[in-house]
Simulated assay, not measured.
Amino acid sequence: MGGSVEWFDLKGILALSGFLISLISLYFTWQNRKLAVNQEKRRTPLLVPALINGFFRRADGGNGRLYALHLTVSNPTDANNAISNAELAITYLTIQRVELTVRLKANDPKATSFVLGQEDFSLSVPFTITAHNAVSGWLRFHLPAKIFETAEIQSYRLILTDAHQQSSEIAPNLMQEYRDETAV
């Protein structure tokens, strides 16, 4: 015998070691892929709006109706986002019983502030919402008198469109009439 050990198969041990290393590498690659997929999900734009209060009142001089909506919009994702457009869609019935919808742009110059303390917390569209942050404030809308006088309002929807043209909607169930009981 030439001093070699027959039970020791170097090629087999190297092959087995290579196979185990490739399994470990496959495991870590799979874990990294899952992590990357989860990170990509967190980068997908998503805004979560919540309505705090909704008020309306007649505009001065019989010039229609004013709406003020207090909302909070949160951004739970890893990417910054922005609200590029905000509209209040009002569905109403005409005298002829035809259902129509009008969309009012936020912060129309005729939509003056009427809720106490609202001026300090007005949202100006467009507005930015950084990652993992929330923005809260008031949006104001003006409904012209021509529509308001001859219509029976059926429903409201607040439509927020982000910078990626994705829309989020809130349907206020109840709009409260605002009355300033402290005014003389």
Results as ranks from 00 to 15, higher is better:
V48I: 14
E119C: 05
I153C: 05
N107K: 03
T44M: 13
D120A: 15
N80S: 12
L100C: 10
K146Q: 09
A68D: 08
I129W: 05
N85D: 09
F114Q: 02
A145R: 07
V125C: 07
L35V: 02
E149I: 13
I147C: 04
V184L: 14
F55D: 06
D108C: 01
R43V: 02
F8M: 06
Y156Q: 07
F56A: 10
A131Q: 12
A183T: 09
S113M: 02
D162M: 05
S17I: 13
F141T: 13
L16A: 15
A50F: 10
S167D: 07
L71W: 03
R58A: 13
S4N: 09
L143T: 03
R97Q: 14
E40Y: 03
S155E: 09
V98E: 15
I95E: 13
V98W: 06
I13Q: 13
E6H: 10
A89S: 12
K105Q: 12
V37K: 03
F141R: 09
G62E: 10
W30S: 01
L26I: 02
Y156E: 07
I13V: 15
G137H: 07
K34I: 02
G54V: 04
A36P: 01
L100P: 01
A163S: 15
L160M: 09
R57D: 07
G64K: 07
V98P: 00
F121N: 13
F127C: 06
A82S: 15
A79D: 12
T29N: 01
T101Q: 08
R179G: 00
Q165E: 12
D108K: 01
T182G: 01
E119I: 14
T130G: 04
A171C: 09
D120C: 05
V5P: 00
P172L: 10
G117Y: 06
K41P: 00
L51R: 04
F8G: 00
A171E: 14
A59M: 10
R43T: 08
G61W: 06
E149R: 14
T161N: 00
V73D: 02
A36T: 03
A145Y: 00
A82W: 04
N75R: 03
P144K: 05
I24T: 11
K11V: 11
G62Q: 08
A82P: 04
T72E: 13
A50L: 10
A50D: 06
T91W: 03
R57T: 15
V5H: 15
M1E: 06
P76F: 09
A79I: 04
D9C: 08
L139H: 08
R179T: 11
N32T: 01
V135P: 00
E99F: 11
W138Y: 15
V73Q: 02
L66V: 13
K146T: 11
A50G: 06
S22G: 08
A163N: 14
F28D: 02
A131V: 06
N32C: 01
K11T: 13
V102K: 04
F56K: 08
F8D: 08
V115F: 01
S4L: 11
N107S: 06
V48P: 00
T72W: 02
L20W: 11
